[in-house]
Design a protein around this nucleic acid. Sequence first.
DNA 1: TTTAATACATAAGATTCAGATGTATTCAGT
DNA 2: ACTGAATACATCTGAATCTTATGTATTAAA
Lengths: 110, 110
Amino acid sequence: MYSSELIKGTLKTIVLKLLAENKRMYGYEITQKVKDLTGNKIQITEGALYPTLHSLEADGILITETEYIGKRVRKYYSLSKEGHNKSKEKVNEFTDFMNTMKFLLEIKPA
Amino acid sequence: MYSSELIKGTLKTIVLKLLAENKRMYGYEITQKVKDLTGNKIQITEGALYPTLHSLEADGILITETEYIGKRVRKYYSLSKEGHNKSKEKVNEFTDFMNTMKFLLEIKPA
DNA sequence: TTTAATACATAAGATTCAGATGTATTCAGT
DNA sequence: ACTGAATACATCTGAATCTTATGTATTAAA
């Protein structure tokens, strides 16, 4: 587990990228996927995820479909057309940011 | 300029790394150095920097010396022995985090 | 001489996340 | 048949961190 500050600011990027790769996912599935893929290093809490999903939906980035699995509600999230662009934007921005940080953290004394 | 969320959580790491490379620096110098090294992509605001410096000092990570340049006060910050360890820790953690993110953002559909 | 740059700093507000709590269903073990 | 863990949604309080605005004062440049 990383110190919590680091994760900040990357949640949206992670969510958008996962949805770009997986067509549609539900909230709980996202938390588990991230946990699995990172070997428990990154754990998205539900208290952080759901507000983020809702705000992305409100912004027209995400579309939802509700389905019933037995009696249990399941809410699938997928990218809108806008969402696909946003996803690429965010991943590109983060990639750029990583390169900048890499440079910054490897500088040797002048 | 990156969307402000991305920078969050990296300020301490940046400051500690710069001080590890430069022995001692003053606040304004740090803002300018980061601006220069990143081609204006990362701009540390003073409202963010000074509280961070003060809290690192309170934690014994940083040591300060005040000097007068003419009549103007200049406050130099440098790493304590603890600070050197903390600096390495933070940089290592961020490096690890970047690798995790890189993996996460490049995954292809299963 | 007055504007921009240097240099410190604080304070109010916004954002964003973690942790706690809540509801309800379903599955596995006993 | 029962109990606890896992699944699945969600909200809310509080903590942490940053941005914007503001303030003081000195010095260099136009």
